[in-house]
Computed example of a mutant assay.
Amino acid sequence: MAYELSDSITINASPAAVFNLLSDITRTGEWSAQCYRAHWNDADDTHASYAPSHGIGSTFTGYNHTPEREWSTTSEVITYKPNTEFSWQVLSSGTIWGYRMEPAPNTNDATLLTEYTAFTPAGEAYFRSKFGPDATAQEAQRQHAATAGITQTLTRIKEILEG
């Protein structure tokens, strides 16, 4: 049940402003539907904020919750293109999450922001090993949560950047 999901929103902020916010993973809890806290794993202070050294290959831990459970994941930054794209891969499942930014058409200093995720065949294998016969149901539950969560997350990011 591999899948890819995405949604987009126009934000009245420059691609640079959007990128600077989203690449500071320590602020993720402000907008994410599930991740309430994140920190860089290579920082001396686990609450350290964004630093330019947090590019491709940097890892971070995200702490997530739903009404049913709490868990943490370690992810690695796989795309770091200032003002254009920021993405990461969850190391346990291979799931990819990210944001793409581009100047919004017919606007002055606005950004078309796209959030996306890809649940890969590696994720399917991980879920089979972790959940056994319940893997398909767990995957469907995650896909449903991601679909709703992406829209909710984009709305929150817009609210933060537009004030």
Rank of each mutant, 00 (worst) to 15 (best):
S75R: 05
T28A: 09
V18N: 04
E76L: 07
Q34N: 05
R69S: 09
R69L: 06
D42M: 12
A38H: 04
L22Y: 05
A38L: 08
W31S: 01
T73Q: 07
A17T: 15
A51W: 00
S53W: 05
T46D: 11
L22M: 11
D44I: 08
F60D: 02
R69N: 09
C35N: 04
T66S: 05
L21W: 10
P67F: 07
H54C: 07
G57A: 02
S49I: 06
N64I: 00
F60C: 02
A51N: 05
E68R: 11
T66P: 00
P15R: 11
E68A: 14
S75V: 02
V18K: 08
E30G: 01
T74A: 09
K81P: 00
S14T: 15
E70R: 12
Y80H: 10
D24I: 07
E70W: 00
F60E: 00
C35S: 12
Y36E: 13
R37P: 07
E70M: 08
G29K: 04
N12T: 13
T28E: 11
T59N: 13
A48C: 01
H39Y: 14
A48E: 15
G57Q: 02
Y80P: 03
N41W: 08
Y36G: 07
G29C: 07
H65N: 03
L21G: 07
D42V: 03
D24Q: 09
A17P: 08
H65C: 05
A43V: 06
P52A: 11
E76G: 06
G62Q: 04
N20I: 06
W71H: 00
A48K: 07
E76Q: 14
T46A: 13
V18Y: 07
G29V: 10
D44W: 01
W71F: 04
F60M: 11
N20H: 11
D42C: 06
N64D: 01
Y63D: 04
R69Y: 04
N41V: 10
W40F: 13
Y50S: 05
I78S: 09
R37D: 15
R37M: 13
S58N: 02
S75A: 15
A16Q: 15
Y80R: 03
T66E: 00
Y50F: 15
A17F: 03
D45E: 08
S75C: 12
T79N: 05
R69G: 03
P67R: 14
H54Y: 14
N12P: 06
E70T: 12
H47G: 14
G62Y: 01
H39I: 05
S75L: 10
H65A: 12
T46V: 11
S32A: 12
S53G: 11
T59Q: 14
S23C: 15
L22E: 04
